[in-house]
Every structure is written in C-alpha cells, then in structure tokens.
C-alpha cells in the first residue's frame, strides 16, 4: 500500500507488454477485436437512445427494429423542447448544478485540508461520519428532510435543493480531495519555501496547481450527482417553473403510457451537457479519481 502512496502524482501512460513480430501483431489484433466488441456492447444502449430519438413514432413502435433511423426526423426533439417548462428546467438545472459544484469544491477543499494536514481531536469521528452519511437510504429520509426544510422555509426553493445536494455530495468530495492533499510530496512544499516564496505564496503556487486535478474530479462528481438527482427535486419543488430537467423528463410518462420518441429525445438533450463537461475535462478525471482513491 505504502509503495503506491509514494508514487508521485504523475500519470504514466501504460505501456503494452512487448512482444515480437507477427505473433505480437496477431495478438494485438485479437485484443483489438475484443475491445471493439466490448465497445459495441457498452455503447449500444446509448446509441439506441439517440437512434430512437431520431425516429418517427411509427418506426419506434415496430415489431421489427429499425437499426438506423431511415427517415430521420427532428419532430421528437421539437416535441420535447415544446413540452411546457423545458427552458425553465434547463435554467434551474444549470443554477443548481453550478451552485452545488462551486460550493462543494470550496467546502470540500477546506475540510480536506483539515483532514490531510492536521491531527486533531474528533478527526476519526468525522471520517466515520462522512462514510456513514452515505449509508442512509434517501427514501427513508424524505419526510424528516421535508419537515426540516419547511421549518426553514425552503420548500419550493432552489436554495433548499442546493443545500440538500451539497450535503449529499460533500462526503465523497471531501474524501477525494483529502487523497490529493495527502499525495502532494512535502518536499515540493519545502522546495517552494526554500526558494524564498512566502508560505502563502507556496500555498498558491505549489499546492493549488497540484490540487487542480482533485478539484476537477470533485467537481465532476458533484456535477453528475446534482444533474441527475430526481427524488429530492420532485418532492421539494412544486411549481413547474421551478423544476429541474430530471423532473421535466418524468413528465413524458403518463397514464397514456410512455411517449418513447420525445422521451428519448429529451433524455439525449439531458445527457448532452454532461458529455460535453466530461469531454472537456476527461484527461483529468481518471487521474483525479485514483489519486483520491489510492490514498483512501
């Protein structure tokens, strides 16, 4: 364990085991074929969602599946966007997500600093607390949470939802950040100070850039959690104009069955921002999560 902990946080690109000549090439081909198969299986459900979104209603409900939308149509997307309150939902989701990401990153950074760089009384208790908090089933907490939120006057308010999401993502984010701070070699901090930097300067110039990937990993986690949550948003936000995208998405399932075309179009639209966010920071994710995990 300790040997991993010692590794400097620089991801080394894994090198494929070396083989020789043709044997190696055939083997590579075999692995690639397997890789393609796995890729196809993993991505198929996502493909099916997007393909369904582009199909006209008659093609969707069909006894013989149409693998490719032969007459692609945007009508499902039009229907989805014209469903009442779409733009409100987009706006609300963006507000909630950015607030949760910003707040959780700041709070998690401060808390993890305490956990990683200090010894203090109650430290273990806090660590057990942040793990234990994740174990409480949300379904059972709804009524108690609602009672609290209504006493605080936070029902039907985005601020209330933001506060709740924040507490649900904090345990994980604090933990991930702590791993990062532990991973920063003390020598680097010292070196910075030897160079004559002030302590605060060392903090900003050395610590912050190193923690960067951790901040990214943390914000992704917070982003996904806040973007995808449904039950809290559904129960605590009453006014349709205040609801988030996930609640809006649920409105496609009515007594008249599920309207698959617009639902899949709406789902595609909802997944899009996450994909974009992901791809923007993708290179950082992998490393971020491990550094946090290795030092858990």
């Amino acid at each position: 364990m300790s040997s991993v902990t010692q590794i400097a946080p620089t991801p080394v690109a894994p090198v494929a085991p070396r083989g020789r000549g043709r044997r190696r090439r055939t083997r590579q081909l075999g692995w690639n074929l397997l890789g393609l198969l796995v890729l196809a299986v993993m991505v198929f459900p996502v493909y099916w969602m997007v393909a369904t979104a582009f199909k006209p209603g008659q093609q969707i409900l069909s006894y013989t599946p149409h693998w490719v939308p032969t007459n692609p149509t945007l009508s499902n997307f039009r229907d989805a966007i014209h469903q009442p309150f779409f733009w409100n939902a987009v706006k609300n989701s963006l507000i909630v997500v950015s607030a949760v990401v910003a707040l959780s990153v700041v709070l998690a950074f401060l808390a993890s600093l305490a956990l990683a760089k200090f010894h203090f009384y109650g430290r273990k208790a806090f660590i057990v607390l942040i793990l234990g908090v994740q174990m409480v089933p949300l379904a059972a907490l709804i009524i108690p949470l609602y009672i609290l939120m209504s006493r605080l006057g936070q029902i039907d308010k985005l601020t209330g939802v933001i506060a709740m999401y924040l507490t649900f993502v904090l345990p994980f984010t604090v933990w991930t950040m702590r791993g990062f701070l532990l991973g920063i070699p003390k020598e680097l901090e010292e070196a910075a100070m030897v160079d004559g930097a002030t302590r605060f300067g060392a903090f900003v110039r050395v610590l912050l850039p190193l923690v960067g990937p951790g901040l990214v990993a943390t914000s992704i986690f917070a982003f996904i959690q806040a973007w995808n949550e449904f039950i809290i948003a559904y129960v605590f936000l009453h006014t349709p104009a205040k609801q988030t995208l996930m609640v809006w998405l649920a409105s496609f399932t009515t007594l008249r069955g599920t309207d698959w075309g617009p639902l899949m179009a709406g789902a595609t639209l909802c997944a899009l921002p996450v994909v974009v966010f992901f791809l923007l920071v993708q290179r950082r994710i992998a490393f971020g999560l491990t550094a946090g995990a290795v030092r858990g």
Binding site: V46, M49, N228, A250, A267, A271, V275
Partner: peptide, 10 residues
Amino acid sequence: VLVWSVPVIV
C-alpha cells in the same frame, strides 16, 4: 464516458 454521462433515470 458516454455511458457514465447517462442519468440513471434515463
């Protein structure tokens, strides 16, 4: 990443 970004409900 695509798979990861699909919300649970979706």
